[in-house]
Every structure is written in structure tokens, then in C-alpha cells.
């Protein structure tokens, strides 16, 4: 287990439920200290993939190595789980125990746990330490989930939609916590529906749909985002037909022109020269890169719409 080895190696992972291939030949690697996000619609195979990594689910085919161990091998499962934290959705916590007791107990499962007070502080539950779990709000319980995930000071933390149900402040705090863990050298694998979350946290993103990874890269470069695919919009000048413009128009909506292009400089130059020559005013001119969401929706095969209502939308 030299620490220069990748934290996670997945090669040709396949898993079927009956006739349904939930995961169909997925391969990826996650380096030590990296924050890796798995994006995909529901039923895409995200959860199955991470359940195989957790050792919770068996696989049909493929190689999987987590921190140098095969998660399917029962003899080393305890060793693996001592180095791994998992935060899943919808898992209850003993309702009658206090927050501190629950963390104390969980800490006892690990050889080198983090101090309970430190963890309470990190998730912002210091004031709830003496309260029973059942008195916590939904968001507070999710933060306790997070605390249980990191109490063992894991080398690898797996987060399944870690901030679903968080208010914006708690969400920001959770992001900071994950960023802090990453600085400590913790490897993080997360699934999320929030593309801004992937963009804020992940150093690398893989988009999975239909059991396959369809794109992988940094959030900035995913699906060629950093290069081509730029969107130019402006309002159609009065008394001008879209056909008379000097550039190819992709879309017209109530006088709003939209052009998607790989050569934005050339298009803008042509447009600018034309406007100056004809003395027309080009109003509301905007140039923007495709958002991660545009790229994502294109990859998972849904119509991206006009993008106006797309910010921070839950995609399920």
C-alpha cells in the first residue's frame, strides 16, 4: 500500500440485477488526495458502483482495488473499513442516544479515531453534543452522518449525495469540510445531483449513464468545455431578418439570437464588422462557455433547454 498508488482502481466493473445491467464495464482511477465526483441521473449505476467499492455489493466481473485491497474479500474487509468512511443517505442513527455517545461508540470501532470534540466542531454540532439524536432536525442528522463518516480519520471517504437536504449555509460548511479533508490528504469520492457541488469540490468528474462512463475530466474541461462550444447571444436588431445576419444562427426565440460555436473569436469579428458597416446596434450581447450542466445534460442525452432556468437545479 505505497501511498503513491492510486486510492481506487476500477477496471471493467460489471454488475447486473436479473436482466438489467446496472453497471456495464466501468473503469476509472482515483489518485490519493483527489476529490472525484460521479455524476449521473438516477438509475445510472452510481450507487451500485460505490456499493461495490464499499464492499457492500458483489460484482459480476472486473477488477476493483480500494486502498490496495479488494473490497470483495471478507478476510480484509475489516482492515479496509478501518481506512474508509462512508456517508450514505437515509440511514438511521440510534434515536435515544446522544450525539456524543453515538460518535463515541463509532470512534471505538476504529484504531486511530479523530477526537470527538474536533469532529463535532468540524460539522458544527458542538451545541448539540448532549442532545438525543431524535431531537435533531433533518439537516443536523445529515451533519451527524458526515461526522460518523469522518470520525475514523479515513484515508478514503465515500459520500453519496452528501448535501441533499442541507440549507445553503450548512451546504457551504460541508463543502469547506470536504475541502479541508482533501487538504489533509483524504481521498474523496462523491456522487451528487448538484453540478455546482461537483464544480466546487471535485478535481475530476466522471459522468455515468446507462451503466457506462460517458465522459471524464476536470470540471473545467469535461466534454470539451474548455475548448469549443461557446454560446453567443444577442437581441436581433430591429428590421433585421435572422437570415440576413452574417453568421449562422442556431436558434431564434422571440427576437433573441443564439449561436453555439467553436470559433467564437471569428464569429464575434464577423458580427462586429457587420454591425459597424451597417450601423446597427447589437444589444444584450453575451458570450459564455457552456455550463457544466449544459455539458452534463448533453452527455446524458436530455434536451438542455435554453439554459436560463438551469442554475442549481436538481436533476432528478
Amino acid at each position: 500500500m505505497a501511498s503513491s498508488d492510486p486510492a481506487v482502481v476500477v477496471e471493467g466493473l460489471t454488475k447486473s440485477y436479473g436482466h438489467v445491467r446496472a453497471v456495464d464495464g466501468v473503469s476509472f482511477e482515483v489518485g490519493r488526495g483527489e476529490v472525484f465526483a460521479l455524476l449521473g441521473p438516477n438509475g445510472a449505476g452510481k450507487t451500485t458502483t460505490i456499493e461495490v467499492l464499499e464492499g457492500f455489493r458483489s460484482r459480476d466481473a472486473g477488477q476493483v482495488e480500494v486502498l490496495g485491497l479488494d473490497p470483495a474479500v471478507e478476510a480484509t474487509s475489516r482492515q479496509l473499513r478501518e481506512c474508509m468512511g462512508v456517508v450514505l443517505q437515509e440511514l438511521a442513527i440510534e434515536p435515544f442516544l446522544t450525539v456524543r455517545r453515538v460518535l463515541d461508540r463509532h470512534a471505538g470501532f476504529f484504531p486511530r479515531p479523530r477526537p470527538v470534540d474536533e469532529v463535532l466542531h468540524l460539522v458544527g454540532l458542538e451545541e448539540k453534543a448532549g442532545k438525543r439524536v431524535k431531537t435533531l432536525s433533518g439537516g443536523q442528522q445529515r451533519r451527524l452522518d458526515l461526522a460518523l463518516g469522518i470520525i475514523g480519520d479515513p484515508e478514503l471517504l465515500i459520500l453519496d449525495e452528501p448535501t441533499t437536504g442541507f440549507d445553503p449555509a450548512a451546504r457551504r460548511q460541508a463543502w469547506e469540510l470536504v475541502a479541508g479533508l482533501s487538504e489533509r490528504g483524504t481521498t474523496v469520492i462523491l456522487t451528487t445531483h448538484y453540478l455546482d457541488e461537483a464544480e466546487a469540490l471535485a478535481s475530476r468528474v466522471a459522468v455515468i449513464t446507462g451503466g457506462r462512463i460517458v465522459a471524464e475530466g476536470t470540471p473545467e474541461s469535461l466534454g470539451g468545455r474548455d475548448r469549443g462550444a461557446c454560446r453567443i447571444r444577442f437581441r436581433l436588431p430591429p428590421d433585421t431578418a435572422p437570415e440576413s445576419l452574417p453568421v449562422a444562427v442556431d436558434r431564434t426565440m422571440q427576437g433573441a439570437i443564439e449561436i453555439t460555436t467553436d470559433e467564437e473569436i471569428a464569429v464575434l469579428a464577423t458580427l462586429a464588422n457587420w454591425a459597424l458597416d451597417h450601423q446597427v446596434e447589437v444589444v444584450n450581447l453575451t458570450v459564455e462557455r457552456l455550463t457544466l450542466e449544459d455539458v452534463y445534460l448533453r452527455l446524458v442525452g436530455e434536451d438542455s433547454g435554453d439554459g436560463a432556468d438551469s442554475d442549481d437545479r436538481d436533476l432528478t
Binding site: 457492500f56 478501518e82 462512508v86 450514505l88 440511514l91 442513527i93 440510534e94 470501532f109 460518523l148 475514523g152
Partner: peptide, 11 residues
């Protein structure tokens, strides 16, 4: 309620 699953995922 998932308490068993949580235990299973712990060491």
C-alpha cells in the same frame, strides 16, 4: 431504517 447497513459499513 438502515442501522444495520451503517454497522455493516463500519469496521
Amino acid at each position: 431504517t438502515g442501522l444495520l447497513k451503517r454497522m455493516r459499513l463500519s469496521p
